[in-house]
Design a protein around this nucleic acid. Structure first.
Lengths: 223, 223
DNA sequence: TCAAAAATCAGGTATTTCCTGATTGAACAT
DNA sequence: ATGTTCAATCAGGAAATACCTGATTTTTGA
């Protein structure tokens, strides 16, 4: 049986070492290299030409998504799997858009590592079991069409301008009533915007929305 | 030689599994339990009474610092080591103030794990080598008072432990009812805690509380 | 040991959310 | 020119939650 070669990319040495230790308990898998950021990862990938590359989402210098995109462009034969702690639908969509073949949560059971490897080696897409979302399933189903006709990428997951406005006002601490007053619309409409943006983002509480808004730079933690 | 028993606490299963795999390559170390947040950690510590407990700094429900503090109070014989990706002095000082015996960066080499264990088992304090700082050493020696972020000092002095717990759970997106269930108290009590911490902080909306919690390092925006 | 602070809880009213709808107008392709 | 999709708007009504004003018990510090 042929060995599967893997490169690990994560900015935490201890985490890399741990995952390596887990992977190497299997005979078919060999970890041929490690990198601590995306830029290193690209040059390693060029040298080693591994079958699979695990990319941490959040890394300094060049993050996992950008790395996946460049890899997909330069070395399309290498499968990339994003390692992430976020369940937000937008990240997953972006990962798939970037050409990643997998999205694995850091909270996965160790067995999912090998499951992910087997899946992507078969040219399929692996998404952590814990992630359930119609949006994502729809996206995956639509993905092949998109890659074949290499045209317009789905804009459904993007918030509308009204939704974005509403999100910002929520994250800035406005109540539904205050938002309605500021936007000169009814409370009911604001409720609808909120419900719809929550559904799109897969985030169903105010605190999560605030953290999301901060993460994407819509607002800033200090004020 | 007697075995050293260890409990691992981190909210990412994959990371726990990795570190466990690294630790168990040593004969003297046995990982007797795992938990995914501070609250689970406390009850595990009670059951298993391990020698050492590794605590991730950034965890849902009850973070590493709060957990170390409670552990130090309830089970002072257990040594706690904070696992963290942050080199900020504030966190290290807070860790030591909370009674932790060690502060280990996630970017450490795997060998540092055992080094940390050996050090704290001798009743010494272990701080990751990568953290350069006379400041820290001075603190350990007790020579200087460290000036830290006013916000952090204030929150620790202003809020009671229950209020900080409540704040963390709110900022993590738990409803009042969920918080009550997690803390095993009534919804009414949670409402009181919330009202009192809001009054103390002068912040009367959830979004503001989330931003505040992020600002003082109680929770982390990227989770 | 005694007062202050922390932690616990309740009743009742006001407000807000949540769910299930609907309508209108604009953009767009056929 | 017409159907389709989507953004934006709004409502009714039940359920949940917040808010206000209390209170009691437990812990802690001086």
């Amino acid at each position: 049986m042929k060995e599967i070669t893997v490169v690990l990319v994560d900015d935490h040495k201890l985490v890399r070492a741990g995952i390596r230790s887990l992977l190497e308990s299997s005979d078919e898998i060999v970890v041929v290299g490690e990198a601590s950021n995306g830029r290193e990862a690209l040059s390693l990938a060029n040298q080693l030409n591994p079958n699979i590359i695990f990319l941490d989402l959040a890394m300094p210098e060049l993050n996992g998504l950008e790395t996946a995109e460049k890899l997909n462009h330069e070395l399309p034969s290498i499968k990339s799997v994003i390692l992430s702690m976020y369940t937000d639908t937008e990240y997953i969509i972006q990962a798939l858009k970037s050409g990643a073949s997998g999205y694995l949560l850091k909270d996965s059971a160790p067995g999912e590592l090998k499951e992910a490897i087997n899946t992507v080696m078969k040219d399929d897409i692996y998404i952590s079991r814990a992630i359930s979302s119609e949006v994502i399933n729809n996206y995956i189903l639509g993905r092949k069409k998109i890659s074949q006709s290499d045209e317009i990428v789905n804009s459904r997951e993007i918030l509308t301008s009204r939704q974005r406005e509403t999100l910002q006002l929520i994250a800035e601490g406005n109540s539904t009533k205050m938002i309605a007053e500021k936007l000169f619309i009814s409370v009911k409409t604001v409720e609808t915007h909120r419900a719809q943006l929550m559904k799109k983002l897969g985030i169903y509480d105010i605190a999560g929305l605030v953290r999301y808004a901060i993460k994407i730079g819509l607002i800033f933690p200090e004020r």
